[in-house]
Structures are given as structure tokens and as C-alpha cells.
Amino acid sequence: MELVMAIVIGVLTSCGVLLVLRAHTFAVVLGLTMLSYAVNLFIFASGGLTAGKGAVLGVTDIYADPLPQALVLTAIVIGFAMTAFLVILAIRARAELGNDHVDGHSGSRQQQESRF
């Protein structure tokens, strides 16, 4: 289980970093979302990975650490709010700056490159 978890977190993180580096707002929003999924899984795993144990006292003899579950809930909620804000900001930037590059370059990327 640890190996699967580690691979999933690693793949999500690398996809997230790659997308963030694309530097176009839509790709960056997707990348940050993937990063936050990776982070959420990571927090979830921080209490130790166990199977078949309850998070509430008295249900099973041995119980899982409930705190990372509370932390990850908080992180998910905050992540949703921030992503929602970022989407609105990205749409506004697209409207005001005329394109979807995070630096607000005018023209497409090819034009940018040919200029140099």
C-alpha cells in the first residue's frame, strides 16, 4: 500500500509541477489542483497507513490516527476556496490582459519566441 501511495503522490506532483510550468493560466490552475491532491494524499498518509481500523474510538480495538483526517478535510476545503478564487481571477486576467499567459504577454507564444 505504501508503494502505491508513494507512486500516486509522485505522479500527481510531477504532473502538477509540469502543468504549473506551462505558464498559461488554465494549465496552471489544473497543475495547482493536481499539486493540492498530491499534498492531500500526503497529509492523509502522515498518520501512518493502516487498513481496517476505525477512526472513532470504541468501534474497533485498534484505531487509526484521526488527526490527519481532520487536517486533510481542512486542507481540501481551503484548497477548493482558493481554486475557485483563482479560476475567477484567471478569467478576469484573460479579459483584461487579452491573453491567458501568466505574465500577460501580448500575442501568442510563437510570436514571443520569434521576437527574440
Binding site: T25, L32, M82, L86, L89, A93, V102, G104
Partner: peptide
Amino acid sequence: TKAALHYVLLNLLGSA
């Protein structure tokens, strides 16, 4: 808008 976009993106990465 442009300054805010950079500020928000950097801080979201920071939060992660």
C-alpha cells in the same frame, strides 16, 4: 490584475 495573478499563484504554491 497582473500583480495579483502572480501573488496568488506564488502563495498557492507556498501553501502546498
